[in-house]
Design a binder for these strands. Structure first.
Lengths: 270, 270
DNA sequence: ATAATAGTGTCTATCAGACATTATCTG
DNA sequence: CAGATAATGTCTGATAGACACTATTAT
């Protein structure tokens, strides 16, 4: 069944003569919130890139880059992440697309935001290059986003206040970040972190997401700490174990605990 | 503090000479799943547009259009929805951004998908125009998407099968649509419907989303039916009322029930 | 044995699910 | 009052939260 359009063209003929025309097209980038645990699981780290050019020159920004012509946004995010950290096959999920016309002062740039969770925070390009990358300590609480790196003496703080708004008949309570430090994140990248963390915490309820920050084989004390870091509050050990019990299987092996006396058992995700 | 870049330019100077360059930029559209209730609340309706040109000529598609240079995607979606239906101030939420390079045979087109919920399904442009719009009966079950309009004799069916996949360490079960009817939806619009419905049902758990399909003042039997339509399963009356009790307030008025005897009371969202 | 962490047992308040009953309206 | 729908009452099993206890290891 070969339909012709009002010009008498078949689909093949139409596509052959098609011209995308002069619609104003935006640039599209991907930007990523990349989280990894500290080595001793005492906190979370977030990966940032120091901007070497205008705008937001010398500001720290989320890693990201332009989406190439022959790749999807997911592929672009995976490629950028790999270029920056060498990481592959980590959890990577689309969060939200940011599209306010003035979000980039250069030209119209939309950003498709992703979040990535890694079991490790591998070394990245040092602080001397034009495009330096570094892992920052990351704290996210009900009323605060704190990002700091004591080695290079950078501290970035945003206070979170609750704001109510309406969408149709539905009422929401949303968090709004307010800069509280001298240093700031580039562009609207705080918003990306905010949206990502909200989505992340919600998805922990019904997915195996925290497992993506654990090693292939993990101890339950470690897994619990990861849950606690991501959720932002502590859990009862017994309840936690019941909660994850049907998703894990014992390996039979034991891990030497770092400081404790009794050795904990190793598990893997079913 | 006025930083200069490696060319010795201030930010102002840099922006004045900035040239977006020859990065390949995609076209960006918004596409919407617009749902409204049937007048008697016996089911859901979905708004579709008949395509008048290639590609997918004569196929039915989700309403949408190009994002203009001076508007956000949210604004573009609101504008398109208003142009198509006259609706304003309805629930409208971003769902997902679809970006596979070959999803549109013409050229690179990314689509930022939205979902909209309306308390009514207002009349739309009839079936004679080049770009006809129509409301279709919409059924979404665990293993089926059925979209049909008996007036114009169109039936579109997709079977849903479960497929497992992995993201980092996290395992997911996802639904994959398979066309089962002669007619089909244009582009990847089934995927948009699928993602939207999954997100919608999830968000019902922790938002007031179904209220956006009810009128300003509503009866609890009606609100319960809306919940049941969106969730796809029936609820116990007593339990439902307990669940919504702290989010509603009585107006003091009563509504004449359509077929019943006892009049039900009118409520509004707190 | 002691100290420190790993792992298990169990009580309780809450709540979703299920079903039963009472209330109100029309003819 | 009969029939139909609106609204409320109440039982039960599952479960999240909380706390207490036992087990295993190194020194």
């Amino acid at each position: 069944m070969e339909y012709k359009d009002q010009d008498g063209l078949t689909e093949k003929e139409f596509l052959a003569q098609y011209n995308p025309g002069d619609y104003a097209r935006p640039s599209v980038t991907v930007d990523m919130m990349v989280l990894g645990p500290k080595k001793d699981y005492s906190g979370l780290k977030i990966l940032l890139i120091k901007r070497g050019g205008h705008p937001f020159i010398n500001c720290w920004a989320l890693p990201g880059g332009f989406v190439h012509e022959d790749e999807s946004c997911y592929q672009a995010a995976g490629r950028e992440l790999n270029e920056e950290t060498g990481l592959k096959n980590v959890f990577l999920e689309q969060v939200y697309t940011f599209s306010k016309p003035d979000r980039d002062p250069r030209t119209r740039v939309m950003s498709v935001a992703y979040m990535a969770l890694s079991p490790v925070a591998p070394p990245v390009r040092g602080g001397d290059d034009a495009v330096a990358a570094a892992w920052f300590d990351f704290e996210f609480s009900e009323n605060m986003i704190r990002i700091h790196n004591d080695d290079i003496g950078v501290e970035i703080n945003y206070q979170l206040s609750t704001k109510r708004f309406k969408n149709g008949n539905v009422k929401y309570a949303n968090l709004v970040p307010v800069l509280k430090s001298k240093a700031q994140l580039a562009f609207d990248h705080v918003e990306i972190i905010l949206e990502s963390m909200i989505k992340l915490r919600r998805e922990i309820e019904y997915t195996d997401l925290p497992f993506s920050m654990a090693n292939e084989e993990f101890t339950l004390p470690d897994l619990q700490v990861i849950y606690e870091l991501l959720l932002g509050h502590s859990l009862y050990k017994a309840n936690f174990r019941i909660m994850v019990s049907d998703r894990i299987e014992a390996t039979g092996k034991k891990a030497k605990s770092v400081v404790g006396r009794r050795m904990s058992e190793l598990y893997r995700l079913k």
